[in-house]
Amino acid sequence: MTEIATPDNDVAAPAPREIVYRHRVVTRVTHWVNALCFTLLLMSGLQILNAHPALYWGQFGADNDTAFIEFFAARPDGRDGELKGFTRVGPVTFETTGLFGVSNDSDGDVRVIAMPGWATIPTNRDLATGRRWHFFFAWLFVINGAVAVGASVLNGHLRRDLLPEKRELRPRHILGDIWNHARLRLPKGDEAKRYNVLQKVSYLGVGLLLLMMIMTGLTMSPGINASAPWMLDLFGGRQSARTIHFLAASATVAFVVVHLAMVLLAGPINEIRSMITGRFVVPPENKS
């Protein structure tokens, strides 16, 4: 096998492939454990949300109190009209039939439920099992996160790779980076070996979102409330914490969408391989 030419030799102008060791093993392992945990926490979390799909501000909140966000079903055209799903955020109501409020189950039957079955663990309505998944993977998520943060501080990943340098925080530099991203001009050559400032801010930001989710999750626990009542004051009450928990999860989903889009744009095989084996082929500088 080794005698056979690699595909690179087929390329007309064979530039030397520069391969760098981009991610340490602790970064790679904690990245994938984190990805698994977040996916399962999100899906089991949506199962838990289905039990009471309304989010409030303050210390309390139930059926008779005004919700900030709610997912519901209604027949806007009267009793014999079609059943439709709606999402209300503050004063604005959207029709979300098929996704939130009303959706089809795997048999195609219309179902009145906040979150669709394909997005929840388990697929059917099952709060007890959803909670089992959520709290098991919450523990794994917290332990994995502690290892990732601890290692990043100790091995210099945080200081060297993640914290922006002073020159990177100049508005001119940030605007330039935004302009390059907007034109989908991704870094090449030496610039691709390190994170750009938007990457740094995004990775640190999602870290803060994940920390916020752990904290707001704990603030929903009546046991933790008794041992750390300051957390209730920090977030403005248990129901506020529950709402922030949902918003932080939503923001993390938005991060994941952009993150995956950037992986696709930057070359998915090279990027994904670098997070599995650690080896990253540096994209060559454009000759033009």
């Binding site: 838990i48 949300l49 009471h52 210390q59 309390f60 909140g61 139930a62 248990r238 129901q239």
Partner: peptide, 12 residues
């Protein structure tokens, strides 16, 4: 005191 249902709502 605050009463927290497993479903997610609370009442005082």
């Amino acid at each position: 005191t605050r009463h927290d249902c497993v479903e997610g709502w609370s009442a005082i």
